[in-house]
């Protein structure tokens, strides 16, 4: 019986390991795998990196990209104090209302507000970006094959198109974007941002930090999940041992 199971399992594993055929219908090079602090079973977020990444988002990406599922209060989780969070929120103008005259008005943001989007709606976003819609970034790491590696690679992947490549008007060539033609101009350049903690703002550094930040934005509960998971798995391993011993004891007279 067991050898049959093993034979079938091996054959099935071989079949499943066959590369998914032309999954992205393009010839992107394999995604370089970066080292992430949140990788693996014991992964955690590096708060310094998240804060730098937030700075990159705030100063570069937020011009076009919303993060509608993040609230200013969430920033407290990446190491900002309550006062810092209030201050950050207050730098944004939030549309509120209607007031007693029936009009909408602007007021400074509060921690309980969601991040103010750069455009009021999709049409305005397209109009400002030659018809392209900058996607919301709150889930982008979860919504793309390759996750943080993909975002990082994409940001680092702008280059001159190879000879003979038909690059359409207004598009840019990126090595890792499916189809290689991306509407977003390269958003990062060296020292585009001056990091508050003094880290040199090279493009790879900014890409890495913003990818970390966006991973946190997509999965803020990752550390909680890993921690609880560890306790649960440990408990279950111990329980398995005890239950197995109990099973053997109960069955002993029968075997």
């Amino acid at each position: 019986m067991l050898k049959h199971v093993l034979a079938a399992a091996t054959l099935s594993a071989t079949i499943s390991a066959l590369p998914p055929i032309a999954r992205a219908a393009d010839e992107s090079p394999p995604l370089p795998h970066q080292e992430w602090s949140f990788d693996g079973v014991f992964g955690t977020y590096d708060r310094a990196s998240l804060q730098r990444g937030f700075q990159v988002y705030k100063e570069v990406c937020s011009v076009c990209h919303p993060v509608k599922h993040l609230y200013y209060r969430d920033l407290a989780e990446i190491g900002y104090s309550e006062d810092e969070v209030k201050a950050i929120a207050a730098t944004y103008q939030v549309t509120d209302g209607p007031n007693d005259q029936g009009e909408m008005y602007q007021r400074p943001g509060r921690p309980s507000d969601p991040f103010v989007p750069p455009f009021p709606n999709d049409q305005a976003a397209r109009a400002a970006n030659n018809g392209a819609l900058p996607p919301d970034l709150s889930m982008i790491v979860k919504a793309r094959e390759g996750g943080a590696d993909y975002v990082d690679a994409l940001l680092n992947g702008y280059k001159e198109p190879p000879a003979g490549f038909n690059l359409l008007q207004g598009m840019q060539y990126d090595e890792y974007f499916p189809g290689h033609q991306i509407a977003m101009p390269p958003p990062l350049s060296d020292n585009a941002v001056t990091f508050a903690d003094g880290t040199p703002a090279t493009v790879p550094q900014m890409a890495h930090d913003v990818a970390s930040f966006l991973t946190w934005a997509a999965e803020p509960n990752l550390e909680d999940r890993h921690r609880t998971g560890f306790k649960v798995m440990l408990f279950l391993v111990v329980a398995a041992g005890v239950f197995y011993a109990a099973k053997r004891k109960i069955w002993a007279p029968v075997h």
Binding site: A240, F243, Y244, A246, K247, I250
Partner: peptide, 11 residues
């Protein structure tokens, strides 16, 4: 016999 076996399998 089978309650304990099922419980072990469950874990």
């Amino acid at each position: 016999y089978f309650t304990i076996k099922d419980l072990f399998g469950l874990v």
